[in-house]
Structures are given as C-alpha cells and as structure tokens.
Design a binder for these strands. Structure first.
Lengths: 156, 156
DNA sequence: CTTATTTCTGGAAATGATTTCCATTAAACA
DNA sequence: TGTTTAATGGAAATCATTTCCAGAAATAAG
C-alpha cells in the first residue's frame, strides 16, 4: 500500500514531523480541505467541509491545527475585516501560486490577483532586503491588500 | 472666541459635518488621542488615554466613533495579529505621513517605516491603475505589512 | 433665545470567534 | 506490543466588539 490515502507521501509531512508534530487524520483532513479550494476559508468553513467525511474532528482541533500550520509557515492567516480569520496554504503540492488580494469594503468580497506581480516581486525583494538590513529584522513574509469598491457595489 | 478648544477650527470638522455627523466632545477627545501619538492604539488604549480628562466617554462610544472614522476614511484600522484592532489617523492636521509596517511575529512589536517608499509609491500607483482597470474596482487604499523576527527575538 | 427634532450617549447585556481545561485517545518509536 | 507523550473533542471560559434602550446633547426651526 503506497500510503494511507493512496495518494503518495504527502508533501507537507516532512515539515510537520521535523518540527516534532505528529501526523493525524484530523490534520490530514484540514490540509486536504485547504488544498482543494482557492476560497479563503474560515475555521468554521473548514469544519463544515470536513465534517461529513470526518465527523469526529472538532472545531477546537481545527483552530489548534491552523494555528500550528501558521507557525510552521505552511498556512497564511488573513483578516479581511469581517470578524473572522481566513486561512490559505502558502504553498501547495505543486508549489506556491503567490497572489495578493483586492478587498471590497462594501460587500467584503475578495479577489485574488496574480498579475502585475513581476514588477512587484522585483521591488519587494529590494524592499525586503533594505528593510531587513536597516532594521535588523529577518523578513519571512509579506501581506499586500488593496481596499476599494467592486463594480457591483459601485453601481449602487 | 476662536473655537471651543481655543486651537482654531479643527481640520476634520468639515468632513465629519459634511457627512451628516455631529461634532461632540467625545469625538474630539478620540481624534485628539489619535493625533497626539504615533502608537498603534486599540479601542481600549484610546479609552485609557482619554478617561482621565473625559471620564464620561465610554468604550462603546469609542468603538462607534472609530468605526465612523474608518468609514469616513479619516482612520485606518489594522490587524497585527494580537486579537485586537489597532487604529491610526490616515492624515493629520499637517497631512499624511504615509508609512507601512514591519511586524515581529515573535513579540508582536510593530515598526513603522517610511523609507524605500518612493519606489513603492511609483509601483503602487501603476499597480493600482492596472488592477482597477482590469477588475473594474475603485481602489481607495492599500495595506502593506512585512512579517518576520526582530533582532531581540532573533537573539533567543 | 427657546423649543423641536434627531443624533449621540453610556452601561448593561448579548454576541460570536477563539482559547482553555481536562480526562480520554492515539501516534510514534523502542 | 508496550510505553511515552502529544493530540483530541466537548463544555466552559475568555474577551473584543455589538446591540439595546432610555436619557442627554447637538443642531435646526421658530
């Protein structure tokens, strides 16, 4: 048998084990849920998507696991201003598809975008270098969001 | 008498009145608190700084007022990951001193920075233009934060 | 200035996301 | 397989933020 779920060794197992954490069914389910969508899931969303298949995974475990994954750098936690945290994988089985967000302050809709990133990446690299030198700060990540009003909300 | 507080007409009165809001002592106190610091104040922080001088301004009013100011665009609301929202004036009596943030994920310390902004401003302008054209989105604002570890936390 | 209208207020109670507790279960590794 | 130790879930606790509502205050009208 190749692997518990018949899908090859999981790309994230190494990082989790290396940090002394165990691989459990709940954790597999949570990462699977995050892997299988581009939506910005809240903890409750993850619970809802998992619950049919894994009725014995509780909300508490989801919060705990997401927190662990954020600390490991496998997941990014976002705040889009609607009162609940949202989570996204920072990298997937096929590697990261880096993107930033456009947040509509009217309807709270979030658009991912990956275009114009080339120039941004170049500038970000320079900026991060400059900042970490000047402030003696090790930069691991960045968050870029644009706020505004989407077409639908503008129409009102 | 020049003005209620003897300090000239307040720069923000116009915007508040134009939107149909009233000028009250509580609101003056809250904006004064935000104006007089570069710290990233939470609602409770504002309460603490105001309470001696204005013991009759309650927390509820502070939340309500900050929310109003965010909607008017006079205040920006931040989430640095410590569970409470932080507020900063977007512009002051002397105009905005635009900056971005460096957040230490270890100790949650936040460093403001204004350097390297020139290149960023240029790229941001272009990016915002491109995004608003492509997604037909009116962009009002942006949020840029870098996450990492500060010198003190690195030392551990 | 006085009164009328409507917003603003604070305090208590409600809310809702997230955490904590703790006895039980299940990975991991010898 | 047995032992060790981390992980679990469900209930209760926490804590920032909102909601309610009757009274106070700001603006508009007279």
């Amino acid at each position: 048998m190749p692997c518990r779920k018949g899908c090859g060794p999981q790309w994230w197992h190494g990082k989790v084990k290396d940090c002394g954490y165990r691989i459990t069914a709940g954790r597999e389910a949570i990462i699977e849920a995050l892997s299988s969508t581009h939506d910005h899931l809240s903890a409750e969303d993850v619970y809802a998507r998992i619950h049919d298949k894994y009725p014995n995974v509780g909300l508490t475990t989801i919060y705990r696991t997401l927190d662990m994954l954020v600390n490991l750098g496998l997941v990014f936690k976002f705040d889009f201003g609607d009162g609940k945290a949202r989570y996204e994988l920072t990298e997937g089985p096929k590697g990261a598809h880096h993107h930033h967000h456009l947040v509509c302050t009217g309807c709270k809709r979030v658009i991912d975008y990956t275009d114009f990133i080339d120039d941004e990446v170049e500038l970000l690299r320079r900026t991060e270098k400059g900042l970490s030198d000047k402030y003696r700060f090790r930069i691991d990540n960045h968050l870029i969001q644009f706020y505004g009003t989407c077409t639908e909300c503008l129409a009102k």
